[in-house]
């Protein structure tokens, strides 16, 4: 028995060796490196090894840090709420209202195809819609709803959140749809036979059973938004900043130690949020 377990462990690690090596060199070592460099010092042109807390001290004493983190949480919170509502409705429609499997697969694919295309292009494609002379403004003006073009449509927090919702709702749809498809239909029939209304079935049967999917989708959306720096830059026209942009600005100025310190704080924040969310779901059981 002992020998068998040993050989199982050996086969397991042999098969997992390529995976482990990739993760070791391109995930663990980079994080370790960032951790080390976050204590280093920097001149205008170079960085030098040191062990000082200056980077963290500066980070935590600057009011900008708190504003930027607050904004990042705001983006994550609003995007999460929007993607959850839209994603749940879409998944509910696909899982319970579309009756043939072929149609379910076809419509599901229709939702997922944009995921395999370029995010940057999908962001840029909002410009003709939201711009000063864009479709949204000209339509509203023609309808007589507004007189002056709205300035806050493009290059604003509104545009940032719209782009996030556009890019990431899919990450809610897929896991929620997946869990909904596994709900035993006889449970819903039983509820109906006992006189439950459509709304009661939704709140007492479907939502509780869909919770794991909701949690997985939430983890995806929250982490993607927390770590983003491209969407905020393009959609806010460089007028707003989140933590990711703070890091990428420091990188642009070759201030790697300061970028590393911010990155460590961001990583810690994200991991804490994930740890809290993981308390509600066992991912390995959901695959």
């Amino acid at each position: 028995m002992q020998a068998e377990r040993k050989s199982e462990t050996l086969t397991g690690w042999l098969l997992a060796a390529p995976l482990t090596l990739v993760l070791l060199f391109f995930l663990i070592l980079p994080i370790a490196m960032i951790f080390v460099v976050s204590f280093w010092g920097a001149t205008e042109f170079s960085i030098y090894p040191a062990f000082q807390f200056d980077n963290y001290q500066f980070l935590f004493s600057s009011p900008v840090t708190y504003q930027v983190f607050a904004k990042t949480f705001m983006y994550a919170g609003v995007t999460w709420a929007c993607t959850l509502v839209i994603g749940f409705a879409v998944a509910h429609f696909l899982a319970f209202h579309v009756r043939s499997l072929t149609w379910q697969i076809a419509l599901f694919l229709l939702c997922t195809i944009p995921f395999w295309t370029s995010n940057i292009i999908r962001m840029i494609s909002w410009i003709p819609f939201l711009g000063r002379n864009g479709i949204a403004n000209s339509t509203l003006m023609e309808l007589g709803i507004i007189r002056e073009p709205l300035e806050w449509l493009l290059y604003s927090d509104f545009a940032v959140i719209l782009a996030f919702v556009h890019l990431y709702t899919l990450f809610m749809v897929v896991p929620i749809f997946n869990t909904m498809m596994r709900i035993d239909r006889s449970l819903i029939e039983a509820a109906r036979d006992n006189g439950a209304s459509g709304f009661q079935i939704l709140t007492n049967v479907i939502i509780p059973l869909t919770k794991p999917g909701i949690m997985i989708g939430s983890i995806f959306v929250v982490t993607l938004v927390m770590g983003d720096f491209v969407t905020v830059r393009i959609m806010s026209g460089s007028q707003s900043a989140n933590v990711g942009r703070l890091i990428s600005n420091d990188i642009g100025l070759l201030q790697y130690p300061s970028a590393a310190a911010t990155a460590m704080v961001l990583l810690a924040t994200v991991l804490i949020m994930i740890a809290i969310m993981l308390r509600f779901v066992n991912i390995r059981k959901e695959l």
Partner: peptide, 15 residues
């Protein structure tokens, strides 16, 4: 999967 992508970029670049 969930690590902010910029950390991979920064870390690998630094190494």
């Amino acid at each position: 999967l969930i690590i902010p992508s910029i950390l991979i970029s920064l870390g690998v670049g630094l190494i």
